[in-house]
């Protein structure tokens, strides 16, 4: 993880859409009086989605004003959580988990596939805004390692060829099916049940 900074090129303004604004108001109302500032993380998250996957400087000021938080506090939060991207990302953001379990189960192959199909550098938009990839820390799906998160979906039990098929689908505009790529339904043993065999369904 490198030092996180706001992107040098910033849009001039940011404002929630009417729909998101209503959602934000509703979200803020969930916090007790005087604690509205606590809504900053969900609001930042929603704003990032609206912006197309990253956080902008006008957005920090907009949310700071909305919640009565000083700008530096919003900036602190946006730079603290790695789930907030500070630079533009592709329409498909491929987040490859490289923490120990995934690495042991072959996340390096996935990285190689990303480098080959998308582009050599992480956090860089390739294919005219189509996609970008990045390494992330544990996604919490170690039972299905190695794991890749694309958008809001997890693609699990991947290997090199499976990743390449996945990326081909994305490039072709097809929607790949989330979940394990090796035929498992979820995290059951790959070769069928190993315990409790005597229990009849």
């Amino acid at each position: 993880m490198s030092t996180r900074r706001l992107a040098p090129d910033q849009p001039a303004t940011f404002a929630f859409t009417a729909e998101n604004l209503a959602w934000a108001k509703d979200r803020i109302a969930k916090y007790p009086d005087g604690r509205q500032a606590s809504a900053i993380v969900p609001l930042l998250w929603r704003a990032q989605e609206q912006q197309g996957g990253y956080v902008t400087e006008p957005m920090l000021r907009y949310l700071g004003d909305m919640l009565g938080l000083s700008y530096i506090r919003v900036y602190e939060i946006a730079t603290f959580y790695t789930m907030f991207n500070l630079a533009p990302v592709g329409r498909h953001l491929i987040q490859v988990c490289t923490t120990t379990p995934c690495m042991l189960r072959g996340s390096d192959e996935i990285l190689d596939a990303c480098k080959k199909h998308i582009g050599p550098k992480p956090q860089t938009v390739y294919g005219e805004g189509l996609w970008s990839w990045m390494e992330v820390e544990c996604l919490g799906a170690c039972v299905n390692a190695p794991v890749v998160q694309i958008g809001k979906d997890f693609y699990e039990d991947l290997d090199g060829p499976a990743t390449e098929r996945l990326l081909d689908d994305l490039k072709a505009g097809r929607a790949p099916k989330p979940g394990p790529a090796n035929g498992r339904f979820s995290s059951e043993p790959l070769g069928g049940a190993t315990t409790l065999k005597e229990v009849k369904a």
């Binding site: 993880m1 490198s2 996180r4």
Partner: peptide
């Protein structure tokens, strides 16, 4: 004046003012 803060985290934490 709520203007100084710590951005980033862990080893990359830095003290700065907003922009």
């Amino acid at each position: 004046v709520d203007e100084i803060g710590a951005i980033g985290r862990g080893e990359d934490m830095e003290i700065t003012t907003y922009l």
